[in-house]
C-alpha cells in the first residue's frame, strides 16, 4: 500500500463512522447545553435572591465546578457513585450529569452577570416614562440582558462541546475511540494515525469555529 494514509478515511464507511463518533459527543453536548440553560436560569435567579444561605450554596457550587477539573468530576460520578450509592451509571449518563452540573453553575453565573449589568437608571428612566413593570422587562431589561448574555452563552456552549471530548476517558465510544479502532484495522498503513487524528482535529474545529465566530460577531454588533 503506497497511497497516503488519508485514503483509508474514504475506504468503506470509515468517514461515516468517525462522524458517528463525533455525533456521540455532540449529542451529549447538546443535551448538556439545553439542560444547562434551563437549570442555569434557575441558578442565576437563586444567586440574585436575597437569601444568604441560598447565595452561599450557589457560590460553593460555582467554586467547586471552577476548581475541579471536569475529568475529576467525571471520575467521581462514573466510578465514585457506583461505589458510594451502588448506582451503576453508564458513561453517557455520567457525562450528562457532570457537564450539566458544571454548565448550570457557569450559565447561571453568566445570567446573573447579565442581569446585574444593566444600570439601575435604565429601569428608573423607563419607569419615569410611565412603563409598567411587565413592559419594563419586555422592552428594556430582557433585550439588554439577552444582548449581553447571548455571546457569552455561545462561548460557554463551545467550551461544553470541547469538554465533552473527555468522555473518551470514561469508556464512551466517541470519535477518538472510533479513530483508534480504524487505526487498529489499518495497522499496515503507517501514517494512518496521523491522518485520522488530523481529521478529528479538523472536525472539532469545524464544529466549534462557527460558534466562536457567531459569538464574536454578536459581541461586536451589540457592544
Amino acid at each position: 500500500m503506497q497511497d497516503l494514509g488519508i485514503g483509508i478515511l474514504f475506504k468503506g464507511v470509515n468517514f461515516q463512522r468517525l462522524l458517528g463518533g463525533l455525533w456521540v459527543t455532540l449529542r451529549l453536548a447538546l443535551i448538556t447545553i439545553g439542560l444547562s440553560c434551563l437549570f442555569g436560569l434557575l441558578f442565576g435567579m437563586l444567586m440574585l435572591s436575597g437569601k444568604r444561605i441560598v447565595k452561599a450554596f450557589c457560590r460553593l457550587w460555582l467554586e467547586i465546578v471552577r476548581f475541579m477539573p471536569q475529568l475529576v468530576l467525571l471520575y467521581l460520578v462514573y466510578f465514585g457513585f457506583a461505589r458510594l450509592f451502588g448506582w451503576d451509571l453508564d458513561g453517557e449518563t455520567s457525562a450528562v450529569i457532570v457537564f450539566t452540573f458544571w454548565g448550570t453553575a457557569e450559565m447561571g453565573d453568566l445570567i446573573r452577570g447579565a442581569l446585574t449589568s444593566i444600570p439601575r437608571h435604565q429601569t428608573e428612566s423607563a419607569a419615569a416614562l410611565g412603563l409598567n413593570k411587565a413592559r419594563i422587562y419586555l422592552h428594556i431589561l430582557i433585550p439588554q440582558t439577552l444582548r449581553r448574555l447571548l455571546p457569552q452563552a455561545i462561548n460557554l456552549s463551545t467550551r461544553i462541546i470541547k469538554t465533552t471530548a473527555l468522555v473518551k476517558m470514561i469508556n464512551v465510544t466517541e470519535v477518538l475511540k472510533v479513530g483508534q479502532q480504524i487505526i487498529g484495522q489499518f495497522y499496515r498503513q503507517p501514517d494512518a494515525a496521523f491522518w485520522v487524528y488530523f481529521v478529528i482535529f479538523l472536525l472539532y474545529f469545524l464544529v466549534c469555529w462557527p460558534f466562536s465566530l457567531l459569538a464574536r460577531h454578536l459581541e461586536k454588533r451589540w457592544a
Binding site: 463551545t158 470541547k162 469538554t163 471530548a165 473527555l166 473518551k168 476517558m169 477518538l176 479513530g179 487524528y197 478529528i200 482535529f201 472539532y204 474545529f205 466549534c208 469555529w209 466562536s212
Partner: peptide, 9 residues
C-alpha cells in the same frame, strides 16, 4: 476551537 485531548492525541 479544539479540545486539548484531541490536540494531544
Amino acid at each position: 476551537n479544539t479540545p486539548l485531548l484531541v490536540q494531544l492525541f
